[in-house]
Nucleic acid binder design. Structure first.
Lengths: 162, 162
DNA sequence: TATATTGGTGTATAATTATGCTATGAGAGA
DNA sequence: TCTCTCATAGCATAATTATACACCAATATA
């Protein structure tokens, strides 16, 4: 049976959503077994056109998935990460207060991003010129927040105030 | 500055979520420019450990994304696709009724999956032994439903009753 | 101390995926 | 019919990613 590009791509989508496909070669074999001869080159192009992505399962092994099943993280959180990465120079905390240091004049930008992200454990923020106070409900929560912000900012230095 | 694996992977996550990284080589260059020498081999291992996936943007170009930002399609829809792919032999429609043909005794399984998926344009289903009637509100809707089911079933034959 | 053991990494290379080029076949128009 | 154009896909190969192996440093063990 001779089939066209459309039909082949439909079948590819079905195979990918049904079973764990982890390489184009594997997909080619599968299609061959259904009487549809196709080369890896063509599959590479098909997968690009369909928008297939290669993600990883729990074991870290790669499997294909159709891109319509992939969604992105919420914009505010992503924006926050970006801002933190760019502007945060230091993270410390003492008691229930986390203190962020930024370049001069940047504090309000960071604080605005923090407010928009509405992170739990953050009761509120106050921004100066190059410093932000983040109020948490207790020391434990402050530690959690500080840790998360430190991670997100990509800082390597320790954040605990000794 | 000497940094460990943990710190490096944190930076990798930040770079990936910040900018459009499309190859390990590109990532390696980026890290080098920050004074962190690392080979492509190590990055390959890091990306697996972090669970990074390679998805595609609107243009079909590949970009890395952290797996925590990837979620799967809803189970019922996926299950329906699976069932349709496996059991549906033919899709036709006439008037506002779509008729599915399945192997003997399989109709109820397919009908149940259809009901669970709660597709719009489907008012209800009736399953016999190897036949299912799907009632839509009019012929146009029936055509839409038939087309969608045909696609999902992976059938190559045309579904329109001439 | 001497000897394993383990985690992390680089090197070289295998495996996988993408692509430049070419060929073929289906329509369009002369 | 002849030629042109366009879409599709194969082949060969480039580009990218994964991995077998070996080495080193740190830690444990006798």
């Amino acid at each position: 049976m001779k089939i066209g590009k459309q039909e082949r791509q439909k079948l590819i989508i079905n195979f990918i959503s049904e079973s764990k496909i982890s390489s184009q070669q594997q997909l080619a074999t599968l299609l061959h077994s259904r009487g549809i001869p196709v080369t890896q080159s063509t599959l590479s192009r098909d997968l690009e056109e369909i928008g297939v992505a290669k993600v990883r399962d729990q074991n870290g092994d790669p499997i294909y998935t159709v891109s319509s099943t992939v969604v992105s993280i919420s914009p505010p959180e992503e924006a926050l990460r970006k801002v933190l990465r760019e502007w945060v120079a230091k993270v410390e905390y003492a008691g229930n207060i986390v203190v962020l240091h930024t370049p001069p004049g940047c504090a309000h930008v960071v604080a605005a991003a923090l407010d928009r992200a509405q992170l739990e454990d953050i009761l509120g923020t106050v921004a100066g010129d190059d410093t932000i106070f983040i109020v948490s409900k207790n020391e434990k929560a402050a530690g959690t927040v500080a840790g998360r912000l430190n991670d997100a900012s990509g800082l390597i230095v320790k954040y605990k105030s000794e």
